[in-house]
Design a protein around this nucleic acid. Structure first.
Lengths: 328, 328
DNA sequence: TTGTACGCGTTATCAG
DNA sequence: CTGATAACGCGTACAA
């Protein structure tokens, strides 16, 4: 790797001059600039970001902490973050926390050790000391905090919409899957669903779910139908769960949506391709990722002209796991 | 952030000594070690990786270049890479190339600019100048190269297995989806399928597909049935395509697998949860990611005691989109 | 308009 | 066993 010194020598100038043309700072004669640029090309030089970062005490790196990239919802948001960051010349270090506080801490430390200029985190513990005493700008994505910059979807409204869809479709014995207790947005959805159901004067069952991963959703779905075999409407905690529920329902010979309606949450990309295609509440994951990235960049640049709490609306996507109803 | 100097001052020793205890290098008296450790704790010090990296000209970072994290196959391999790397104290910078050579180059540059010690890449262009003249250890994942360290699955065999499954299930008019021309493993699968079909003396159609992304698989599937409406067996280029094919088939009132058999490729996590669950050729994506990481670490450590070409076997997973046949 | 010299936080060498 | 000190590659006063 060529260094700035090599370029300087090749161009017959000092390193300071090279640095100047590199950063288009200060004055530099047109001719010398040309010489330097030629040298750069000739040597295929590109500046060492590490040295730069050491000197400036900040890099062009940001940290992204997600629960588990393997969960189909997260790649969308990760991609949104990445795209926006890339357009602004930032790169990302990524870590999977598995919702494990130790891993979370480890990664946060890695981030600071590498001079990242900010982090975007999808955490269940926004209010722990970890974050409150964190010295860099942090944007909380998906899992909100009151007084800190955050980007999230209107989970409560999402829960309502889901319940309303199920109700409109005529289900009489609804079961709500109440996502993991420690996952805030899951509880919001649950809240919203409960509210709508109660306002409609409907009875409902609740199934507690402890995880959002692939491994357990199938047993969860079994569980659901074992416990409430005659349920005819399921408000799933997310699309993954919903898919498992469809699977289990079909396996038990129950027709979807004729015998059981099912509505998911997230609208992961696969949902529209299922058979039957999943009716669900859409969160704009990709856009949320982008928004979080934009917000973080603003914070990094110390621009405080941006709203710190960005709530995204949520939308009911009617597909084929709910019964069509006439709309007015 | 406390620096090594702060620690030295606090402990009443020189930075050299602190460095020694940090790296457990050289001799340091038990008592002084204690003092230093106390100081470290007191100041909540952790070494600046950037400075370290500058001096040693290498970091604890590796670069991971994938086509698109949004495609459900890749998170698995990314996760495998991450887990293995993490266990070895490496962290990863991730980039989505979108199979775009410019982006690929950009990221490769970022990687070197940040002193990564190696890269794992899923690229279609392993033999371009980009890589042949790359100065760091590189492991090619999934998309192979002859003479360079690589980890891949036996796509050809996979294609055969897929075809054999379809044949065994009794399909008479098979259609093969031939993945993107520039994606080597897709062509391998195609090869294998063709071979098996021809050996069995069967006729078949071919549908050319140009991408692996979510956006186009549905029109692809439409296309397939528009062109070959009476096809009764589809060998999909991957699970995503297969899912779209199921969707389209069901939409057209064709029963799966009674009227059409379908077999996928990859075995992405969702495949087993579909209804009907997808019969597919399994590639151990997560393990492949891990293997690539291990291989890269070996290369970094200059251990040449490891096989440089790691081929993973592939496996037919019979689920419900193929007809059950008696096995001997 | 250009060059010299210092510092960013570490590690390694070498003298003590 | 310990402490100065020179690098690592870059950016920026400050001087010229």
């Amino acid at each position: 790797m060529a260094t700035i010194k090599d370029v300087a020598r090749q161009a017959g100038v000092s390193v300071a001059t090279v640095s100047r043309v590199l950063n288009s700072a200060g004055y530099v004669h047109e001719d010398t600039r040309k010489k330097v640029e030629d040298a750069i090309l000739a040597l295929n030089y590109s500046p060492n970001e590490v040295a730069r970062s050491l000197y400036k005490r900040k890099s062009k790196l940001i940290g992204l902490l997600i629960p588990d990239i393997t969960n189909p919802y997260f790649p969308q948001v990760a991609r949104g973050v990445e795209d926006e960051m890339r357009e602004n010349d930032y790169r990302i270090i990524i870590g999977n926390s598995d919702e494990n506080e130790q891993k979370e801490l480890d990664y946060l430390q890695t981030f600071t050790q590498n001079n990242v200029v900010g982090v975007i985190t999808l955490t269940n513990n926004p209010d722990t000391n970890t974050y409150t005493s964190f010295s860099l700008p942090v944007v909380f994505l998906d899992r909100t905090s009151h007084d800190k910059p955050s980007v999230y979807a209107d989970g409560r409204q999402g829960g309502r919409l889901a319940a309303e869809a199920i109700i409109a479709g005529g289900s009489k014995e609804v079961t709500i899957m109440q996502g993991p207790a420690h996952v805030k947005p899951a509880q919001d959805r649950y809240q919203g669903a409960v509210e709508a159901l109660e306002e409609a004067g409907m009875d409902y069952h609740v199934i507690q779910t402890s995880t959002f991963s692939f491994h357990n959703v199938d047993v969860l779905a079994k569980n659901l139908f074992d416990t409430y075999p005659s349920t005819d409407g399921v408000i799933a905690s997310n699309d993954l769960a919903a898919i498992a529920v469809i699977h289990e329902a079909v396996k038990r010979g129950r027709r979807v949506p004729d015998d059981v309606q099912i509505v998911g949450f997230d609208d992961i990309p696969i949902s529209g391709l299922l058979s039957p295609a999943l009716s669900t509440i859409r969160q704009p994951a990709y856009e949320m990722g982008r928004a979080a990235a934009r917000l973080l960049i603003h914070l990094i640049d110390n621009k405080h002209n941006m709203e710190n709490y960005i709530q995204f609306p949520v939308e009911y996507i009617e597909r084929n796991t709910t019964r069509k109803v006439a709309r007015n």
